[in-house]
Design a protein around this nucleic acid. Structure first.
Lengths: 234, 234
DNA sequence: ACCGTTGTGTGACCGCCGTCACCGACGCGC
DNA sequence: GCGCGTCGGTGACGGCGGTCACACAACGGT
């Protein structure tokens, strides 16, 4: 397809993992053999509740939403995985040989490098930078999960909504978000009507501006104040 | 604090970590030098929100409650650490060099082996069993955090209360729990009155029996049904 | 036996938010 | 234009559970 040579998997991996420059040749060969280049379209289910975990996907591009689904169909977004990040649950399941307790869906088309479990273990045993990378990301996620639990318990919906909006501003880099009230409600495990009412309030207060399927953030500082100032993964 | 007729620290460590039998002599020496035997009375605060994490405590005896405290003083128990377990947050903070996002309090008097960060890193680099031990525990905790978030979001108080009771039955091994309504309320980030009413209902239904400062679980299966996926009959 | 402390029961009130019902607004295809 | 699906706004209602304000019982110390 491509006229120019595609980077090797080891190279693509090295780009994702800071400090992982020089590799043992045997290890590099193992990567070429065992790692897999992955591309999935938006909407694809990457893993689901109860399914076993066979390896770790390192994201180069796209966005993955990881969410817990209740019996009644309601859904709580646990976190989102962006390029350069890792999926805690996947690492967790790999380390503990457990099944996934949640669902991962490609929010935007996904491209990355997939490391099957044996390769993952070999890498984490052999490469300190790889370990550091995985566990650093891991650590941030655990904190964010704790934050989530606290936000759901203490924080009221307005606060969580503010956080969700800020999160989207941060990851998209734009202040005009293309998101429907229904989507936000699903993300927060709430009801569309509640979200609509709150957004209406924010619009009245001049914090945001609404369009059909869009939200424009006008007053980010105010939104941050509402979110409660809690540090949400830089 | 060294030469004693008591087991060496390396030995105590080996008892805690399955499969960690034979150690490199240099490593064993490092453990003797750097690890610290720790004993703290019930009620002692082992770490608190915002404080840095300097090492990992492996519990030999006692019980640690890890909870997130809100601004208004309400408290949500994230999990409890029992002997043989590790504290996710501690490991997480160690790995990510982050500050604690929660508070850890000795619920019963605590005894254990404390591994300062450098020693922890050395051990996790050198010993596969140690890595496996830490990360296995880590994995379980992450799952339990996800469960917690889901329970708080979807589950109602009765369900969470049932879980809390069962958890205590499990860890104490006895069906007569010495726990006050106030304590349960704090654990669930709820109100004492709510807990009292729910417990009253359970007593009426014959699921439990109450005393002053005690709860006797009579019908564990029924309690489990409540804690599980069964819809609540009101 | 007295009294303070701690644990529990109970009624009243109310706010948040989930649910139901419905309608209007916008977009798209034909 | 017309129909229709998606999106959003609004009112009504109700339940869970948090808060307040008590009353009271159990235990402990002196």
């Amino acid at each position: 397809m491509s006229a120019h040579p595609v980077p090797t998997l080891a190279l693509r991996l090295a780009r994702l993992v800071p400090g992982m420059g020089v590799l043992d040749p045997a290890l590099a060969r193992a990567i070429e053999h065992e790692a897999v280049a992955v591309e999935r379209p938006a909407g694809a289910v990457l893993f689901d509740t109860g399914s076993p975990c066979s390896g770790l996907l390192l994201l180069e591009d796209g966005l993955v939403r990881v969410s817990r689904v209740a019996e009644d169909g309601r859904e709580l977004q646990l976190y989102r995985v962006e390029p350069g990040e890792t999926c805690v649950l996947t690492v967790s399941c790999l380390l503990g040989r457990a099944d996934y307790p949640a669902r991962g869906v490609a929010d935007r088309a996904v491209q990355g490098v997939y490391l099957p479990a044996p390769l993952f273990e070999r890498l984490s045993a052999a490469s300190a930078p790889f370990r550091a990378f995985v566990f650093q990301a891991f650590s941030e996620r655990v904190t964010s999960l704790v934050d989530l639990a606290a936000a759901v318990t203490f924080g009221h919906l307005d606060r969580r909504l503010a956080r969700a909006l800020l999160e989207r501003v941060r990851t998209s880099g734009r202040i005009v978000l293309t998101v429907t009230h229904t989507e936000l409600a699903a993300e927060l495990a709430s009801a569309r009507e509640s979200v609509s009412r709150l957004l209406g309030g924010l619009a009245d207060a001049g914090v945001i501006e609404q369009g059909r399927g869009t939200v424009r953030v006008l007053d980010k500082p105010r939104l941050e104040a509402m979110a409660g100032g809690a540090p949400l993964t830089h």
